[in-house]
């Protein structure tokens, strides 16, 4: 390598205008960043992102094969050394799950009975689309996945993405055959949640580290929080359906409350995209009801003897 500096051959560029083109492109880059800061990503850049996802998806799928092969072999070797311990643990887990299953069946029957009695209208069950993870960003602050399904499979921007344990994130870019999923651990991720046992609404904010943090809109009931409390999506904002398991309260100190995520966000090969529709409230009926209330109030007001 010592003699590398001795060679001088012409390649793609020209020495004379190298600096000039470099400065020009630097100026273009800075302008692109400034445009990004002011939200210009929405139109042209977003379309470019979608197209690029479709182009690189087959390439990433091909490069994934050797990675998966090695990963599976290493997994098999590890499993071989731990199979007795794993077997014992799985037996115990299976016995526990059978108890839970029987309880769940009973509860489901009861819930169905009460729903019929009350004539409650619920969201339709979400349709699940199973996809494979072909990419995972390796940047210092971004945490996102690239999955091998897009618009042609029915995926839309905003859809929730889960694994077997819980929420992973939501779709932010949708190409024709590939999509990008913004993970809960990304620095820009904000997901409205509900802390079940405390009855508090909050926001899970990604911190590009393993554990996201809880942000609160109201601080009056925070003292009631305890580690281990279950966190689910709240459905606020109308983006994600209510009730998807997110994680549990992990640690509480004076400044931050961290969340232990349920999903295996560091080791996800397959994910499930939830395609769902929120119940649409009939606007006409509401307007009619409001108008009726206003009319009734004005009628009461006009008949008030003091007026």
């Amino acid at each position: 390598m010592e003699e590398l500096g001795q060679f001088r051959r012409e390649g793609l560029g020209k020495k004379s205008n190298r600096r000039l083109s470099l400065i020009f492109l630097l100026a273009v880059s800075v302008m692109m960043f400034v445009f990004s800061l002011y939200g210009a990503q929405a139109s042209v850049f977003e379309k470019a992102r979608e197209t690029l996802l479709d182009i690189v998806e087959p390439v990433l799928s091909v490069f994934n094969r050797p990675l998966r092969f090695v990963d599976n072999r290493i997994g098999n070797i590890t499993d071989y050394f731990n199979y007795l311990e794993q077997n014992e643990r799985l037996r115990e887990e299976n016995a526990e799950l059978r108890t839970w299953m029987n309880e769940a069946i009973t509860l489901r029957r009861q819930v169905t009975y009460y729903q019929e009695l009350l004539d409650v209208q619920f969201d339709e069950a979400a349709e699940a689309i199973d996809t494979r993870v072909v990419g995972e960003t390796g940047g210092p602050y971004q945490r996102s996945l690239i999955i091998n399904a897009g618009r042609s499979q029915g995926i839309e921007t905003g859809d929730a993405v889960i694994d077997t344990e819980g929420l992973i994130g939501h779709v932010v870019t949708t190409g024709n055959s590939a999509s990008r999923v913004l993970m809960l651990t990304d620095f820009s991720s904000r997901v409205p949640v509900f802390i079940e046992d405390a009855g508090i609404e909050a926001i899970v904010a990604g911190k590009y580290l393993d554990a996201p943090e809880l942000m609160f809109l109201e601080t009056r009931d925070i003292e009631t929080l305890q580690p281990g409390m279950r966190i689910v999506t709240s459905g606020a904002g109308g983006n994600l359906p209510r009730g998807i398991p997110v994680g549990s309260v992990d640690s509480i100190d004076e400044r931050t409350i961290k969340v232990r995520l349920f999903s295996k966000y560091n080791d996800t090969d397959f994910v499930r995209v939830l395609d769902y529709d929120f119940i649409e409230i009939s606007v006409d009926e509401d307007i009619g009801a409001d108008t009726a209330i206003i009319a009734a109030e004005s009628e009461v007001g006009s008949s008030d003897p003091e007026n």
Partner: peptide, 18 residues
């Protein structure tokens, strides 16, 4: 590919090259 704002890595790499 990283999904972040555009111009970040282009600027970093071009400055490094400079």
């Amino acid at each position: 590919m990283l999904g972040g704002p555009l111009g970040v890595w282009t600027t970093a790499y071009l400055v490094t090259q400079y």
